[in-house]
Every structure is written in structure tokens, then in C-alpha cells.
């Protein structure tokens, strides 16, 4: 069953098309990742789904409610972690969540228990009475996650959940997200411009570029579609390429002198087999296919190239050049 479904969702800002005729469907209990560079339209999509921004055309359903016709019902169904900090620095962690619980109309007698549970989930229970201004960046993010869970939403929007966190904080955050999806059986729409994040968390990924989904599948399938991982073997004598080609897992073999590049499916399982045929070798190097390769394949650019290119200013310049 799909919990979030968009129908030709479009948003224009002046002449710039931020979201272009988007139609996606997110299943219950799924973590759906929108992966794309800054300015690709990810936040705009979330804002429209959260009823903060009206689409130029098209619509969407969240938890079965239309974002245009039943915005109140939609807001009751969603929790959201914004990209920028959104907790009050002069309030304690506990107070921050408590006030939101009241806004969601949660009965008084349930509030305290709910907050304690939410804070325990993100391991902030012992800091609940400290002012948020004394929290670290990672703690604030976790607090905001706890806050967004207080009314037990069906759908959770996470807009760049680990932006600005250090690698350790990022990994911790990933663990929380995975855990709460498991424990609370939530559906998650995640936006990120970190490849590893989408890879680690999402069941399915939509790669978004200039407001359009260019490809959508599971991370594994996306990478597999590129043919597989590349194993480079150096040996003292040329490898028996014919024999290698006979293996089911081998997609491609390129030999240049003593060096052989073999494109192979599922390197973890099949490397042994490969090495057995290769016999005595000097070195072996495995390069796993990454989502960066996937992005490159579908947009013709790497993410980094795209970052610089996709600022609003450049977009507008680009558009006017195209017109001229």
C-alpha cells in the first residue's frame, strides 16, 4: 500500500522549474531516499508534501489525505525533521518537545510518558533538563527527531538528517533512523546529497536532478544495472580470459598485457571463484560500484560537478542563455 503518492507534482518559482511533474509512490514501512545535489528540488518536494508550500500544479496524497483538500489531516499524519535547526535554544529539551506535544493535542496524562520514551530512543533522556543552547549539533538533530515522533506520525520526512554532523554523529543518526523505522513501523521519506547515506538507509532511491526523478530503484539494483564491480588483477603471465568469460558472474573482461580488468556481479560471493581460475597473481584490486557511478551514468555528471552547476543563479543564467 502506498502511503505517499504524488500526481504530477510541479512547482515553479518564476521561470525556474524546481519540481517537474513528479509522480512517485512510497510504500508503507519503506525508507525512500531522494538523492540529488543541493538545489535539485528535494526540499521543495518535502515542503509541498508537508502543506507548507502550494504546488503550481498537480497534487499528492499523504496517508490517504490530499495535501490540497485535507491539509489538516495531512499535518496530523506527518513528522518532519527540517534541514535547519528548529528547536528553541532557550528551552530545555524536555520543554521543546512538551510544547509540540500540546500543539498536537496529545492528552496531558500521556505527554510525559511519550516524551520520556522519545528521548530514550535518541539517548537524550539524561540531558532533558538542559537548555538546548548547550546541546551539540548532533544532539539537537536527535532532539528534533524525538520531537517529530511525539505524535506517532505515519510518515516521517527527514530533510538532510545528517547535514553538518561529523562522521561519528552521522553513523549514530543512521542507527536511530533504522531503529525507529523498525520499532515504530514508520514510512520515511529521506532527502540527502550524501551517496553513502542513501545507500546505507534507503530501500529505494530516486535520483533527482533539476526537479526530475531520472531513475528509481533499490540501491543494489541501481548499481547492478551498471554491470557490476570491477576487479583488476595483475599477474606474472596473462590470465586465461576465455575461461574467465565462461563464469556466469563475469560480465566483461578487458586484458591489457599483464593487467586484466574483470567486471563482475556480486564481488563478495564470486571473487574466490575468479581467483581460483587466475591462479598465481601479483595483486588484486576491487572497485565497488558506487551510487556516484550511478549518478554519473544517469545525469552525465558526477554529483560534485553538479553541485556547482545547480545553484539558483546559475540555473537562471543557464535558462536565459538557452532562450537567447
Amino acid at each position: 500500500m502506498s502511503v505517499v503518492e504524488t500526481f504530477g507534482l510541479t512547482k515553479n518559482f518564476g521561470k525556474v522549474v524546481a519540481v517537474d511533474n513528479l509522480s512517485i509512490s512510497i510504500n508503507e514501512g519503506e525508507i525512500f531516499g531522494l538523492l540529488g545535489p543541493n538545489g535539485a528540488g528535494k526540499t521543495t518536494i518535502i515542503k509541498m508534501l508537508a502543506t507548507l508550500l502550494e504546488p503550481t500544479s498537480g497534487t499528492a496524497k499523504v496517508n490517504g489525505f490530499d495535501i490540497l483538500k485535507q491539509p489538516d489531516k495531512v499535518r496530523e499524519s506527518i513528522g518532519i525533521l527540517f534541514q535547519e535547526p528548529s528547536s528553541d535554544e532557550l528551552l530545555t529539551g524536555y520543554e521543546n518537545i512538551k510544547l509540540y506535544a500540546m500543539m498536537y493535542g496529545i492528552p496531558k496524562e500521556q505527554i510525559s510518558k511519550g516524551i520520556t520514551e522519545a528521548l530514550e530512543l535518541v539517548e537524550l533522556a539524561d540531558r532533558k533538563d538542559d537548555l538546548v543552547k548547550h546541546y551539540s549539533g548532533g544532539m539537537r538533530r536527535r532532539l528534533e527527531i524525538a520531537r517529530s515522533l511525539i505524535h506517532k506520525p505515519k510518515v516521517l520526512f527527514l530533510d538532510e538528517p545528517t547535514l553538518g554532523l561529523d562522521p561519528r554523529g552521522r553513523e549514530r543518526m543512521w542507527n536511530y533512523i533504522v531503529r525507529l523505522v523498525k520499532e515504530l513501523r514508520m514510512t520515511v521519506l529521506l532527502t540527502t546529497h550524501y551517496m553513502e547515506e542513501a545507500d546505507a538507509l534507503a530501500n529505494r532511491i530516486g535520483i533527482i536532478d533539476r526537479g526530475k526523478i531520472v531513475v528509481l530503484d533499490s540501491p543494489k539494483a541501481l548499481k547492478k544495472a551498471l554491470g557490476g564491480d570491477v576487479v583488476t588483477i595483475r599477474a606474472t603471465r596473462p590470465l586465461p580470459t576465455e575461461e574467465l568469460r565462461k563464469l556466469d558472474c563475469v560480465k566483461d573482461v578487458k586484458q591489457e598485457g599483464l593487467e586484466t580488468k574483470i567486471t563482475i556481479e556480486d564481488v563478495g560471493e564470486n571473487l574466490q571463484q575468479l581467483l581460483k581460475i587466475a591462479g598465481k597473481i601479483e595483486s588484486v584490486e576491487v572497485r565497488n560500484t558506487t551510487l556516484n557511478d550511478v549518478f554519473l551514468r544517469w545525469t552525465g555528471r558526477t554529483m560534485e560537478e553538479n553541485e556547482g552547476e545547480s545553484s539558483w543563479f546559475d540555473k537562471i543564467v543557464q535558462e536565459s542563455v538557452e532562450k537567447a
Partner: peptide, 13 residues
């Protein structure tokens, strides 16, 4: 800031 947005996405009118 996103502070106000966080309030605007609650069901509060």
C-alpha cells in the same frame, strides 16, 4: 529559521 515552520506543520490552525 525553521522554528516557525515546525510550528506551522502541526495541526494547529
Amino acid at each position: 529559521m525553521d522554528l516557525l515552520k515546525a510550528i506551522l506543520v502541526t495541526p494547529l490552525s
